[in-house]
Amino acid sequence: MSIKPLRKAVFPVAGLGTRFLPATKATPKEMLPVVDRPLIQYAVDEAIEAGIEQMIFVTGRNKTAIEDHFDIAFELETTMAGRGKSLEVLEATRLKPGACAYVRQQEPLGLGHAVWCARDIVGDEPFAIFLADELMIGKPGCMKAMVEAYNRIGGNVVCGLEVPASETDKYGIIDPGERDGALVEVKGLVEKPKQGSAPSNIMIPGRYILQPEVMRILETQEKGAGGEIQLTDAMAQMIGTQPFHAFTFGGKRYDCGDKAGYVQANLELALAHPEIGAKVRAFGERLFAKG
């Protein structure tokens, strides 16, 4: 079996971020910082660690801050250099020439539609998808571990994560088959099943490796849950025609599209930060001692 290398990643970043208003009125939710890096930077860093070469951002109105973030900031860099400050802190924001591509999603028609907007850039290659508000922390990174699995088995690989049964109606849920270590055969997918009807408690936390055939399915995909074009529905049609597995990630996941999850991510990563961890921990101990 010939397995094409994974070189491209799609970042659907056109969402309005309404759950974080008014903070996201003028700032993309993907640019909200977790300690000292915006969410989109964590996702791109994860992609680079996995060996991905081209980042495809599916943007919308008021998302130019994302483009600016991965561009060269001449005024900032000149000023910093003139003051003798190191530019090393900006290295991760300077992607290689040609490594970024941007395409606009004009209407908010769902995740499946956003991914489909990148079809011409993806072409006839397998590609990864990153949902930047799903912050995945681990060593190795989630996508790197998924790519290692993909290079062995090919086909389609999604990340799998167990959640409480009471939360299965919030996510795309896997109908599992045979297990082989961290890999689980995917027999079916259900988008946001009603309480009590989920085939398992394994959800897909915003990391995917898909074959390009999914784009042809999305082209005629009808609206599903929430009145949107759902990626899960398109993936479900590929099961049985191509290998399809879930890789269970052993690291941590923070739902940074949720206010509580976002605060938790900031707190835990701040505690682990070498510069500020001790101060944050001491503050937390004083704060909780008062309670």
Rank of each mutant, 00 (worst) to 15 (best):
P212Y: 14
T24E: 13
V115Q: 06
T232E: 03
I202E: 00
K192G: 02
P5T: 12
V13Y: 08
A73R: 10
Q264E: 12
E162G: 00
I48P: 03
R207W: 09
F70K: 01
V186L: 01
K144V: 04
M146S: 11
Y102G: 11
G181N: 05
V190D: 07
R7C: 02
E88A: 15
D45H: 11
G154C: 10
G98H: 13
M146F: 09
P140T: 06
C159S: 08
E148G: 04
P274R: 11
M31A: 05
G160D: 01
E91W: 03
P108L: 12
Y171M: 01
E222I: 06
K290L: 14
P140E: 09
F244K: 02
L21F: 15
G226T: 10
P212L: 08
V89D: 10
T93E: 14
E75F: 13
Y42I: 04
G123Q: 08
M203D: 00
T93F: 11
P140D: 14
F249I: 00
G291W: 10
M143Q: 03
K223W: 00
R207Q: 14
I52A: 10
E91K: 14
A132N: 04
I217F: 04
N62P: 07
A14G: 13
E228S: 10
G284V: 05
P199Q: 07
G15W: 05
A47V: 06
P97D: 12
P126L: 03
I173P: 01
A145S: 15
T24Y: 07
Q242A: 09
G17D: 09
K194M: 04
P193E: 07
E49M: 06
W116D: 02
A289Q: 14
M1N: 11
R7M: 05
T64R: 13
Q195R: 02
A47P: 14
Y42L: 11
I276L: 11
P176I: 03
N151P: 01
Y150S: 07
P164K: 01
E148H: 01
K279R: 13
R119D: 10
E88Q: 14
Q41V: 15
E49A: 15
M136G: 12
A278E: 15
E67H: 13
E88R: 12
F247N: 01
V163S: 00
Q264M: 05
K194S: 13
E30H: 08
A26F: 13
V13S: 15
M146A: 07
I173S: 00
H113R: 09
I48N: 01
E268L: 08
P199L: 02
R19T: 07
C142N: 02
L267N: 02
E107T: 05
A23C: 03
A65V: 03
V122Q: 03
L189I: 14
T241L: 12
A149I: 09
C159I: 00
V122C: 03
P108N: 15
A278N: 07
A43M: 04
P199F: 09
Q230P: 01
I153N: 01
C256G: 00
A50G: 05
V214K: 02
F74C: 05
D175I: 06
